[in-house]
Design a protein around this nucleic acid. Structure first.
Lengths: 346, 346
DNA sequence: TTGTACGCGTTATCAT
DNA sequence: ATGATAACGCGTACAA
């Protein structure tokens, strides 16, 4: 079933069929056009995009690489990307890496082999994959520009700017600083930080913001108050239990994302501690469930939809080279709900 | 940059390059092979999958159509599909329809035009798209078999069996019945049901199970106790407020999914009602956050990963025609946590 | 063991 | 206004 079958059925040449399919080309006599259209309908013919792309040297496909689609933060990014893409006639193929370097490499390989016109790469915290050994191997090596150059594959980064590509960012340092200072300004002095994977630049920046806030307000840093998690609920739960049971006695907790904050809330409840009376809590992301918890979670709202939309727009606009220098940074906002209050013993 | 460039760089013919790339073909003299490999590396050459697919008449790509990726239920399905697919050397492209018929049609069209080898279609509740008018138009028309037949595109359905394709299902009627009877067995007689979009077969079946349970236990049905939602938190919140404020006085609520149950919990808390002392609550799905709420949500666990994995396996195995007759049904399990207890006034 | 040539389904160029 | 035909990049009979 191809264009030749249609041509035969309509009693015309393949060129004519192609012309009625392709609006931009030569005119076709109305009655001929009609015959062709009928043949197409009757046969249920769909032009082969592979052949078309092969000839035109562009696929109208862009890849979107995300670390963990089960994190409720990402669907909004995806939607932003998709909306911008489909408005421009592009299709997006979504690739979930599970924070696994090997999966990411495999997807990038597939994307260039299938000649995607561009790729949006979100998130940097790579786990290191099954070969154990975690470490920093991943990212930089696999995203090497020379991999994409021969094929003109455009790249835009989201949430990292460690490579010479255009990128869209938020001010993680500033946002974490603001979140932490919200607690210090309420009088807290023992504030814990539940981090995500420390290999992630996002996490490093948020941790830096937390430390900066402490320093500014003259609160001595204590390493025992910083715990590494993995962005999922169970790690937030475990970190919080450990924090309390180790006798660190935090009166406030900043979590590097909402999912871990949810875990923290559960742990506090299980330990008989009340939020915010006994312990205050701030999250990061503002995923949709955050406002439906009771108490509702105070958290840093990240404009995830806009981030995705902006990234895809930059990709499509073939951003001028200068864009690779300074990341495009979008604003965050601390949304204050019900999980923070003054410390118990002030 | 193509296979000819590599051939020239290595001083061999394109056929030889193809042979070292394609393990299944003729042997190549080791030293020649080495020269070719070096040329490939040096040039950063990646074979063009489009051309390859065009020639072989298969893309090794399958589509996965989901109604709403932001529903935390779906990521697990996606993962199941992906694991099964990549184990078989297939790539999956994820398509999010937003429960919009037009988006779904557009994706299906794109998938056949790009010659996907198969498609897994999850979820049936189509909203009707921007043209207003909702209704049942959608599904059946757009998934018409004659659309795919000319191209041999295999289809597997998930969570619906209203069309002549193989499908994987859960027993929604039975599961909802069990959830509801959990409440009746605790002594509840005023049990509300918060539905998802009523056009969804899943929702219809769960509603039927709820009604069956009521009938079995001699509880008269009251239409005022059934409310339609849209599977998102806000609709669960609104439905619950309305239920209480309308004076329906339910002592138990069954929600058609967890997200709406979360909304319900928030509403109950805001109304000063305690769970489970004043009102008991059962959800559906068992998404990961469900066990991290306090009280932890009692809910029907749906084997989402297995569902995805099974669906893709069926797709790849080119299920025998008989599979289109009876849906493959997977078991659910009511997981009892802390949101149900005896009614207040028993 | 290696090279030549054809075809996969399109669109674009050049005739008619 | 329409038709014949050459690419696009690859795999693979077939020839050498």
């Amino acid at each position: 079933m191809n264009i030749r079958d249609v041509a035969a059925a309509a009693g015309v040449s393949v060129a004519t069929v192609s012309r009625v399919l392709n609006p931009t080309s030569d005119p076709v006599r109305p009655e001929t056009r009609q015959r062709v259209i009928e043949a197409i309908e009757r046969l249920g013919y769909r032009p082969n995009d592979l052949a078309r792309a092969l000839l035109q040297r562009r696929t109208n496909v862009v890849g979107l690489v995300v670390p963990d689609i089960s994190n409720p933060y990402y669907p909004a990014v995806v939607r932003g990307v998709e909306d911008a893409a489909s408005a421009a006639g592009y299709r997006v193929v979504l690739c979930n890496t599970d924070r696994d370097v090997e999966k990411m490499d495999a997807y990038l390989d597939t994307l260039v082999k299938s000649r995607a016109d561009g790729i949006v790469v979100a998130g940097g915290g790579m786990g290191g994959g099954p070969e154990g050994q975690g470490g920093r191997k991943g990212a930089a090596g696999t995203l090497s520009p020379q991999l994409f150059e021969p094929y003109g594959t455009k790249i835009v980064l989201v949430g990292r700017h460690d490579l010479p590509y255009p990128s869209v960012q938020i001010d993680n340092v500033g946002a974490a600083r603001e979140a932490t200072r919200h607690l210090t300004s309420l009088g807290h002095r023992r504030i814990a930080f539940i981090a995500g994977p420390l290999v992630s630049h996002t996490v490093q920046d948020r941790l830096a913001g937390y430390r900066a806030a402490l320093a500014e307000d003259g609160v001595p840093a204590e390493e025992g108050l910083v715990r590494e998690g993995d962005f999922q609920e169970p790690s937030g739960y475990a970190a919080t239990r450990a924090l309390i049971e180790d006798g660190q006695g935090p009166t406030g907790i900043v979590a590097a994302n909402d999912r871990m904050a949810f875990g923290a809330m559960a742990a506090l409840a299980d330990l008989g501690l009340r939020v915010p009376e006994d312990v205050s809590l701030v999250g990061f992301d503002d995923v949709s469930i955050a406002s439906y918890l009771r108490p509702a979670l105070t958290t840093v709202a990240v404009p995830s939809y806009r981030i995705g939309h902006t990234a895809m727009t930059m990709l499509l606009e073939d951003a001028d080279p200068s864009a690779a220098e300074r990341p495009h940074v979008l604003p965050t906002e601390l949304v204050i709900r019900d999980t923070c209050g003054p410390p118990r013993t002030v």
